[in-house]
């Protein structure tokens, strides 16, 4: 049962990702990526991380990708896409680099010492994550809030001033 779900989610994620990079219309690319994020959220649930799965959907699919879609619509990018040349020039090069990278990653992962290990505890609760976040990881947590503040100010400045 789990295997079936894994295969569905994994194939959906990979298929949507491939479709995303080959779509010429940026809105379609965006929607494919949202689908990939959903499939990844499914994989996170299978891995016993329901909190991260929910965050993935709320933040990634629900906020970040909506922002992308908003910008694409605001700038009306799909009209411009039609004037482009049909064949991307770098495709063979890109596929070659991608194949090399995949090979390299496969070699690295083969050396991972815990490949044969069985899965650990079943499901992480929100309490565990909260406790860890506010004890061991309190400084990164506070730093990330500063980062977000900086991002907000940066975005406002960029959007306001005419360059």
């Amino acid at each position: 049962m789990t295997t079936v779900f894994f295969l569905i989610f994994a194939l959906t994620a990979i298929g949507a990702a491939v479709a995303m990079i080959f779509q010429r219309n940026p809105v379609y690319s965006c929607l494919c990526l949202v689908l990939a994020f959903f499939a990844l959220a499914g994989l996170y649930v299978l891995l016993g991380a329901p909190f991260i799965a929910a965050i993935q959907i709320i933040v990634y699919a629900g906020a970040i990708m909506v922002l992308f879609l908003f910008v694409i619509m605001l700038l009306n990018l799909s009209a411009e896409e039609r004037e482009r040349p049909k064949r991307p020039r770098f495709l063979p090069f890109a596929v070659a680099v991608g194949g090399l990278l995949l090979l390299e990653l496969a070699l690295v992962f083969r050396r991972a010492p815990l490949l044969g290990m069985p899965a650990g505890q079943s499901e992480t609760s929100v309490e565990e994550i909260g406790l860890k976040l506010f004890t061991d990881y309190i400084y990164p947590f506070e730093l990330s809030s500063v980062l977000i503040l900086a991002a907000i100010i940066g975005a406002v400045m960029l959007a306001k001033r005419k360059i």
Partner: peptide, 25 residues
Amino acid sequence: DLNIGLLIIFSATAMGVYGIVLAGW
């Protein structure tokens, strides 16, 4: 009854934007 029930509701709310945005576009 899920442990993250409220987050499921927020996910649904967050995805609700797509119907409207895509309809308009």
